[in-house]
Each structure stands twice: as structure tokens, then as C-alpha cells.
Design a binder for these strands. Structure first.
Lengths: 214, 214
DNA sequence: GTCTATAGGCTGATAGAC
DNA sequence: GTCTATCAGCCTATAGAC
């Protein structure tokens, strides 16, 4: 308690409070993604994190504030990944676009489900902060399309439609993996389970064919 | 109360009980789609339907049974649409496939959101009935692909991947319509809002380019 | 079939000891 | 910071009058 970082290494060993905060955020992220906000109890979060229930309110100010912190971190991280991408030097910007979204969702497994649940609920949709971030996220697609030599008829494609054509299958692939795993357990015949990387390549391939000149 | 159908028309005027059941199912379908199972209260359903709260349990046996009835009806309806489609005489079976899924979701607006929420929750996923229906739904894509003269490299595409490439954007388009409407209210510049039909055509177009020989 | 009233369980937040 | 104990509110389901 007296010193914040030990002298034995460059990475400081987190004190108990820091570990508590982290454990709560990790456990809550998974539960919010799997069950949604309402169906996730503070008791469940505390149990999964291995901490006392009262610490959720103490450290984050309540279940709602905790939820907001988790979603914000994930969206900001995705925006950061997108900002770091070097699209001008990429041979296939459309493939790079798919990879960015895939990397963001792979790095924060709760991002896809939480965004999806946000969009599913029309009432929660008008929260100003989320909406602004979501629009910025979608605007990236428009910027990338400017770098691609589009096929003639592809120029008419609405950037938002292209965005949906990428993000839709990606999120769907991630959540459908569970379905196919469950199916593989039950079904007599084995079910093929492509990896995310394989799916990303296929999706980029299909997108190229749909947008690029022959 | 004495007679079930009036003599004035072929379509019988529903008695109060029938109208009650229908009002509950309609109201609950919208709420389950928008908020999910846990966040939807029986009070909300009854209020939205304009009926007494106790009638939900009386007519359906409880909130859980009501949910199951609504989801089953929608999935069965989609399967029926798929079964009726004449794929052999279609010039573009891949476009027909997109149209079938789109028609099912347009006809039952709660189908997409409810299926999505089912898949998002890993625990609820192993309910045997839902899983079986979901797999049958996905198997349709495989059947349709057999009718399409695929481009050489497209033969390697996993049918399940193609399925995700269709259903993913479709569901995403439907729920994202709300996002864009909300955005259009707030944003200074107007946001384009393509119709479902336009989106279906674009999606079929992109799918053709991705699968068909040049 | 419909309604009112209520039981029984669960939920999020917090006061106060340590 | 952490923990225990507890409260007030909300939830679904149902008994019983009509």
C-alpha cells in the first residue's frame, strides 16, 4: 500500500483496488454481451468477478455507469484502430477495411454484441454519445471507399449499404460461431467451423468482386 | 356471445377472447423484439395490448410460454415461405434467396430481432427446438447454391458463410434503419434512407457478382 | 373471460462495521 | 477498500370475486 510499483519490474503489479476494478469490468463485459443490460444482475457480475457485490457501486457508481464505461472503452478502441490504419499504402483498401472491423471485434469480444443490443433497442438509441460514436464508426467506410477504384455500377452503392455488408456478416459470423458449435455437438454429421481469419479473407474476396473492375 | 360468426360477411368478427389473444401477441412481439425477454414486463405487454395483466397468464400460461409461441410462429412462417419458393424456374436463384429472407423478415418484423437475441445468448441457445429450426433455416442456403452456376473459386465458399453474407446484412439493414432515422433527426446533413427493396436488389447484385461467372 | 388484490421472490443500492 | 446486512421497489403468477 505504501508504494504503487514494485522495483522488481517495469510493469507495476496492480494493487487490490485496481485488480478489483479490472475483474469487475471483465466479468461485466462478458455478461452484458451475453445477456444484455437488464438480464445481468449486479450479483452475477460480482460472483463472476470474485468480488463483493457492494464494490460495483463503490467503484463505478452503479450498474448503469459500469455499462457505459465498458461500452465506451470498446468503441473508442475500435475508433483508434481505424485511425491508425494506413489505407493509402494498402493494395486492397476494401480488404483492409474488413480487417479493421474484424480486428476491433476480435480484440474486444463484447463490442459486437453490445453494439448490436444497443441498436436493437429503439429507446436506448437516442443517447447522444453512443449515436455520435456509431456515426463516426460508419463514416469510416465512406472514407475508405474513396480509395478504391470502383467498378462503374458500384459507384452508385450507398456507403452505408457497403458498411452494412461488411459489419453485418462479421458480427453475424462471430455470434453464429456459437450456434455452429452447439450444432456440432448435437448433429450427427460434423459441421465445418471456419476461423475468423478465413472468414475475413472470404468476405474481402467477395467484396472485391462486388466492387472492383473485372 | 351466443354466435361465433355474424351472418353479414365471410370473415367472422373475432370475439373478445380472440381479440385479446391477438392483441397480446402483437404487443408482446414488438416488445420482445425491441427490449428482449427479460426487459419486457408482463405489465408492459398488457398495457400496450390494452388488456388486463392477468390475461397473459390465463391465455398463454405465462410470459415464457407466450414468448415461445410468438417465436415459433414467426420461424414457421419463414420456413413456409422458403418451402413455397420455386427456385428451379428462377433465372437468378441467388437473388430469389435474398428475396425470401427479406420477405420473411418484412412480414414478421420481430423475426430478425428475436432470432438475433436468441443467438446472442449462449445459454438460451441450446434449447433443442430453436436450434433445430435455426439449422433448417440455414440449410436452405445450401440447397439454393446447388441451383447456381458458380464461378470457379466461388465453389469453395462455405454455404454457411454465404448464408451469413445474406442474412447478416439483411437483419443489420432492418435494425440499422432505426439508427439512420435517429441520425437523420440529429445530423445537419440529410442521411439517405434506401428502402428494403432497393437494399435487396443491391445485395442480390453484389451476391451475383461475387458468385457468378464473369 | 375478465378483473382486483396480493403473495413470494428477486433486484440495485447503501448504511455502517472493519 | 472491503464486507455484511438490509431496505424499498419491482417483478410474475395466482386466488378468488364477478
Amino acid at each position: 500500500m505504501a508504494s504503487e510499483a514494485p522495483s522488481t519490474g517495469t510493469a507495476p503489479i496492480a494493487d487490490r483496488a485496481t485488480r478489483t476494478r479490472r475483474a469487475i469490468m471483465d466479468a461485466a463485459a462478458k455478461l452484458f454481451a451475453d445477456k444484455g443490460f437488464k438480464a445481468t444482475g449486479v450479483r452475477d457480475i460480482a460472483a463472476a468477478a470474485g468480488v463483493n457485490q457492494a464494490l460495483v457501486s463503490y467503484h463505478f457508481g452503479g450498474k448503469g455507469a459500469l455499462y457505459h464505461d465498458i461500452l465506451s472503452e470498446a468503441v473508442d478502441h475500435a475508433a483508434q484502430l481505424a485511425g491508425e490504419a494506413d489505407l493509402d499504402s494498402a493494395d486492397y483498401p476494401e480488404r483492409e477495411l474488413v480487417r479493421i472491423f474484424a480486428a476491433a471485434m476480435a480484440s474486444r469480444p463484447h463490442l459486437g454484441p453490445m453494439i448490436l443490443r444497443e441498436q436493437l433497442d429503439p429507446e436506448q438509441l437516442l443517447r447522444p454519445e453512443s449515436l455520435t460514436k456509431m456515426l463516426g464508426f460508419m463514416a469510416l467506410t465512406e472514407a475508405v471507399l474513396a480509395h478504391i477504384p470502383l467498378r462503374e455500377e458500384a459507384r452508385r452503392y450507398d456507403p452505408q449499404i457497403v458498411h452494412l455488408t461488411i459489419v453485418g456478416p462479421l458480427i453475424h459470423f462471430l455470434i453464429a460461431t456459437r450456434v455452429r458449435e452447439a450444432a456440432a455437438q448435437k448433429a450427427a454429421r460434423p459441421v465445418s467451423l471456419p476461423t475468423l481469419d478465413e472468414f475475413v479473407e472470404t468476405l474481402g474476396d467477395m467484396l472485391s468482386h462486388a466492387l472492383r473492375p473485372t
